[in-house]
């Protein structure tokens, strides 16, 4: 279930299909990536996707962070959802990698999520969000 969403558009009702099913000539507009799926295979189809769900079966498996960035770097603007074993303390990193909705398996405390997202005002590196890295603030 989507617990946290940072977008204004309508939630896609269509269920997401696997990457293989999608590549097999599906007309689906929602797709689900497992950790070992290659996100780059979606690049030719980003225009017609409204939801990409990235699975996190275990919170320690960080492949989904790279998948998210690759999709955003390729210009994807639809919903990018982290689903699965997602912890409060990972959400800030995930937001920076381009995720804008979260469907954690265990329910998260909204106050704790809000606190985690507002802890840092400054970031050292450029990522997939709009944050201006510290080096740019230093040098304009």
């Amino acid at each position: 279930m989507v617990e946290f969403r940072y977008r204004d558009d309508e939630v896609t009702e269509q269920p997401s299909v696997t990457l293989d099913a999608f590549l097999d000539q599906s007309n689906a507009s929602a797709v689900r990536l497992e950790p070992d799926d290659d996100a780059r295979k979606l690049i030719p189809f980003l225009d017609r996707l409204t939801l990409i769900e990235v699975a996190f079966p275990k919170f320690r498996d960080g492949r989904g962070y790279s998948s998210a960035r690759i999709l955003r770097e390729a210009g994807y603007t639809g919903e990018l959802r982290a689903q699965g074993d997602v912890l409060v303390d990972q959400i800030a990193f995930m937001r920076r990698c381009g995720f804008d909705s979260f469907a954690p398996e265990g329910s998260l405390n909204p106050e704790a999520v809000e606190r985690a997202l507002s802890t840092y005002d400054q970031y050292y590196q450029k990522a997939a969000d709009a944050a201006v890295p510290v080096w740019k603030l230093r040098h304009g």
């Binding site: 498996d61 960080g62 962070y65 990193f93 970031y123």
Partner: peptide
């Protein structure tokens, strides 16, 4: 050091 500090993509490496 600065680049790697809280790197959002590389905090859950293998």
């Amino acid at each position: 050091r600065q680049w790697s500090t809280f790197h959002p993509e590389f905090s859950y490496l293998p």
